[in-house]
């Protein structure tokens, strides 16, 4: 470095004064203060900031994946709920049809049950006898199986068991054998009690 070379200072005012009044060169050393040194940017800050940004971006990505994963799961579960609701409605529909009076009547008839000709009995305390409300003898002879009150829906149900109980489990079949029905002194048939 040439000792006489003018020092370039980027201020026109200084340039002017320098040309007017040159001064002897003074050796100066720029020393940073502790405060300045402390304020200087450090690598660790940069790393922290970048890591932070990356972490945020990463977390956002994961959250977004989780949300859309959840959306698929909700959608799946809703679908499942809908199909289960449908299934339950379909089953209760079948239950209602199976519980239809026509079906019960024809099932009862096929098990050998007949409509009662006396619909109720009362004990008469005055005479010690019994009185009954007579119903109608079954003129059709088919019990409830005549289908006089049609039901299109019960037609699709599986056929009820034959009257001899042959379709029943073995244990139940024996119970279907007609029991001896003794007659009481009043002339009213009574079942055997154990």
């Amino acid at each position: 470095m040439n000792a006489t070379a003018p020092i370039r200072i980027p201020s026109t005012r200084h340039v002017r004064s320098e040309t007017l009044a040159p001064r002897p060169r003074r050796l100066t050393e720029v020393v940073t203060t502790r405060g300045q040194r402390r304020a200087r940017p450090r690598v660790v800050h940069a790393v922290t900031a970048i890591a932070g940004v990356l972490a945020i971006v990463g977390a956002q990505l994961l959250l977004s994946i989780a949300i859309s994963g959840g959306a698929y799961r909700i959608s799946d579960l809703q679908q499942q709920q809908r199909s289960l609701t449908r299934e339950s409605e379909s089953l209760s529909e079948q239950l209602e049809i199976a519980a239809a009076t026509q079906h019960l009547a024809s099932a009862a008839a096929s098990l050998g049950m007949v409509p009662a000709t006396a619909t109720s009995f009362f004990l008469d305390l005055a005479t010690g006898g019994a009185v009954g409300a007579p119903g109608m003898p079954d003129s059709t002879g088919c019990g409830g199986a005549c289908n006089l009150v049609p039901n299109q829906l019960t037609k699709s149900l599986p056929a009820v068991l034959p009257a001899d109980g042959s379709g029943l489990p073995v244990g139940v079949q024996t119970q279907l054998q007609p029991a001896e029905t003794p007659t009481t002194s009043l002339g009213i048939p009574a079942p055997v009690t154990h």
């Binding site: 049809i97 519980a99 239809a100 009076t101 009150v149 039901n151 299109q152 829906l153």
Partner: peptide, 8 residues
Amino acid sequence: RTYPNGAI
């Protein structure tokens, strides 16, 4: 629409 009890 269904009518589980048919003609009843």
